[in-house]
C-alpha cells in the first residue's frame, strides 16, 4: 500500500484567553457542546460527577463578603507542547501532530483513563455511559465530528474539523490561509471576544500580537507542560494574583 503524504504548511495553533474580558456567560460551553457532539449533561450526570465540558468556566470568589468578586477562568485542553497525557497512553490513542495539536484518536482508545489521571488541567473526559440524544435532537449532530461511544476518552481538539475544512477550502480556492479564516466554535461564540485563535508561526496573526503581552501567563506553568493556550490576566484594582489557578 502506498501512503500518500500530504505536504502541509507548518503551522502552530494557539489560543489566547483574555480573562479580563470573560464575563462567565458560558456561551463557549454551549457552542462547543453543539459543534463537537458532546453528550448532554443531565442533572443525573452532574450528580454522578461525570459531566463532559470540553471547555468549562471555573468560578472563583475573591475577597470577603460583602466585597466579593466573582472571577471566571475558561479552561479547555491546553494542547500542551510537552503533554503529560501523551506518554502514559499505552495504545497511542493520544499523540502530538505536526501542528502542535494534542490529538485524540477515539478508535484506538481502550479507556485506561490514565491520561485523565495525569492531566494537570483535568480537561479529559471519559464516556462512562453510551451517549444518548433525545429524538428531537437526532438530526442536530455535526456530521464532521465522530460521535464517541462509551468507554473512550475525549477532549477539546481546537475544533480540528474546522481547521481541516479551512485548509481544504483555502487549497481549493488556491489561496493562502489567512488569519481569522479558522475559528473554533468557542471563539466564534464568545460575545466579548475573550477567546482569540490563530497561527502563532504567522507573525501577523492576532495571537502573535499577544506574544509579548505583559499580562500573559500559562496555567500551572510550574509543571513545564509548555501549553499552547495563553491567558491574559485580569487588570482591575482588586485582582491581586496574576494567575488564579
Amino acid at each position: 500500500m502506498v501512503i500518500e503524504v500530504i505536504e502541509r504548511q507548518t503551522r502552530k495553533w494557539q489560543m489566547v484567553v483574555d480573562v479580563d474580558k470573560c464575563t462567565g456567560c458560558q456561551a463557549c460551553v454551549i457552542a462547543c457542546q453543539v459543534e463537537n457532539n458532546v453528550a448532554l449533561n443531565s442533572d443525573e450526570i452532574f450528580r454522578q460527577r461525570r459531566a463532559t465540558e470540553w471547555i468549562r468556566i471555573e468560578r472563583y470568589w475573591e475577597g470577603e463578603f460583602p466585597n466579593v468578586k466573582a472571577r471566571f477562568l475558561p479552561v479547555l485542553c491546553q494542547q500542551c507542547g510537552n503533554a503529560p497525557c501523551e506518554p502514559v497512553c499505552p495504545v497511542f490513542a493520544t499523540y502530538h501532530n505536526d501542528q502542535g495539536l494534542n490529538v485524540q484518536v477515539y478508535n484506538r482508545c481502550v479507556g485506561t483513563r490514565y491520561c485523565q489521571n495525569n492531566c494537570p488541567y483535568h480537561v479529559r473526559f471519559f464516556n462512562f455511559w453510551e451517549p444518548v440524544w433525545p429524538e428531537s435532537l437526532r438530526n442536530h449532530l455535526n456530521p464532521d465530528v465522530t460521535v464517541r461511544s462509551r468507554g473512550v476518552m475525549e477532549k477539546c481538539t481546537f475544533c480540528v474539523q474546522r481547521i481541516r475544512r479551512g485548509e481544504l477550502d483555502a487549497d481549493r480556492e488556491g489561496r493562502q490561509l489567512k488569519d481569522g479564516d479558522i475559528q473554533p466554535a468557542c471563539a466564534q461564540a464568545c460575545p466579548t471576544d475573550a477567546l482569540v485563535f490563530g497561527d502563532i508561526s504567522d507573525s501577523n496573526s492576532r495571537v502573535s500580537g499577544f506574544a509579548e503581552n505583559k499580562r500573559k501567563f500559562h496555567l500551572r506553568e510550574e509543571l513545564g507542560t509548555d501549553t499552547n493556550v495563553i491567558y491574559l490576566a485580569k487588570v482591575d484594582a482588586e485582582a491581586k494574583d496574576r494567575s488564579h489557578a
Partner: peptide
C-alpha cells in the same frame, strides 16, 4: 454490558 457507569468512578477519581 452497561459500561463503566455502573461503578462508582467519576471525574476526579478515574481509578
Amino acid at each position: 454490558n452497561k459500561g463503566l457507569g455502573v461503578t462508582g468512578l467519576n471525574r476526579p477519581v478515574m481509578w
